[in-house]
Every structure is written in C-alpha cells, then in structure tokens.
Simulated scan of single mutants.
Amino acid sequence: MEKLDSIIFYNIDKAIRTYRNYAQRQLKANGFNITIDQWLIIKAILENPGITQNEIGDLAFKDNASVTRIIELLVKSEYIIRNINSDDRRKTNLDVTESGKEIIKKVQKLIENNRKTALKDVTKEELEIMNSALLKISKNCLNAKK
C-alpha cells in the first residue's frame, strides 16, 4: 500500500495548504486585517476591470457563495465598492477603492517575502520544471473525457 507522502497530489495539496497557513500567519503577525482570499479577490478585481463574480470564483478557486461572502466583507471593510452597471441594472460592477489599492501595495512586499521563504533552496531550474509539470497536469485534467 502506498504511503500518503509518496502521492504527488497529496504533496501538492500539503505544500499549498502549508504555504497558505504560513502566509496567513504572516499577514496577522504584521498587523494586516485581511485574509489571503480577500487579498486574492481584491487583486483579481484590480487586474481585471469588469470581472464577474463567477470569473472571480474561477480565478480564486472559490465557489459563488464564498466569493459573495468575501465580497460582502470587502465592501464592509471599504476595500471595494459596488456600482450599478449602466448597461444592465440587475448587474453590479466591482471597483477597488483607494484603501483597497493601498492594502494591496502594503501587503505586496510581505507576499514577496513569503514566497522567498517558501522557495528557499529551490533552484530556478526546479521551479521551471515544477511549473511546467503543474501546467501539464491542469491541462490534462481540463481536457480529460468524462
């Protein structure tokens, strides 16, 4: 019987969860009142003007209910605002406020340091191979016949 730590997908998931927990602890330790998921969603809105909630969910790997909940918190924290879509009043546009842009800027340096810590002793060649392999895995799963 194979051991968990010999299963590549277990190790990928473990690495991601360990990194996210570490990154979240760093945010809290440095006095930021924002979660990794909130940061991801602000960043997605900032980088993709006019993005829909479904598209945000796809980018952040979150279901619609989670995205809605996070957006509510971000509106309450005044990091984003909702504006009525001028073409379709049933839709809203999400925009990042100045304080939202500011928190992204402030957190960016910490995020870069977190990545540096996580990738310590991983060579550029190893990163390129790993990135290529992960992209192939994603492509294989997306293109798999049901």
Rank of each mutant, 00 (worst) to 15 (best):
A65S: 15
A144W: 08
E98G: 06
K106A: 10
W39T: 07
V75M: 04
Q38G: 01
A23R: 03
I34P: 02
E55I: 00
E98Q: 13
T68Q: 12
K120A: 09
K146T: 13
I80H: 02
K120N: 09
E72S: 15
Y19L: 07
E98N: 11
N64E: 10
A133G: 04
K101T: 01
A15C: 11
K109Q: 12
K120C: 04
D58Y: 05
E2D: 14
D63G: 14
K116M: 06
I137C: 07
Q53W: 09
D63T: 06
K139V: 04
N30H: 14
K124L: 14
V67T: 05
L135K: 14
K106E: 12
A15T: 14
T18G: 13
A144R: 11
R89W: 08
F61L: 10
S99I: 04
F32W: 00
L127E: 11
S66H: 01
W39E: 10
T68R: 12
K105A: 15
K136A: 13
A118I: 11
E55G: 02
I103F: 04
N30V: 03
E2W: 07
E98R: 10
E125M: 06
E2A: 14
G31Q: 03
W39M: 13
T123L: 06
N131A: 11
T68V: 10
L46W: 06
Q26L: 09
I51H: 06
K120L: 08
C141H: 12
I137Q: 03
T117F: 13
F9T: 13
V67L: 00
G100L: 03
K139T: 11
I56L: 02
R89L: 09
L74V: 01
N140L: 12
K136C: 10
T117I: 15
Q108T: 15
M130I: 15
V96A: 04
T92S: 14
K124W: 04
D5S: 11
K105G: 15
E98D: 13
T92I: 08
I104A: 06
Y79S: 03
R25N: 14
K120P: 04
I84L: 07
F9P: 03
A118S: 14
E102A: 09
N131C: 04
I8H: 09
K136H: 10
D63K: 14
I84Y: 05
S132P: 03
I104H: 06
I111S: 10
N64V: 08
R69N: 07
Y19E: 05
C141F: 15
A60S: 08
R20K: 13
I16F: 13
L134C: 07
N93C: 08
E55H: 00
Y10E: 14
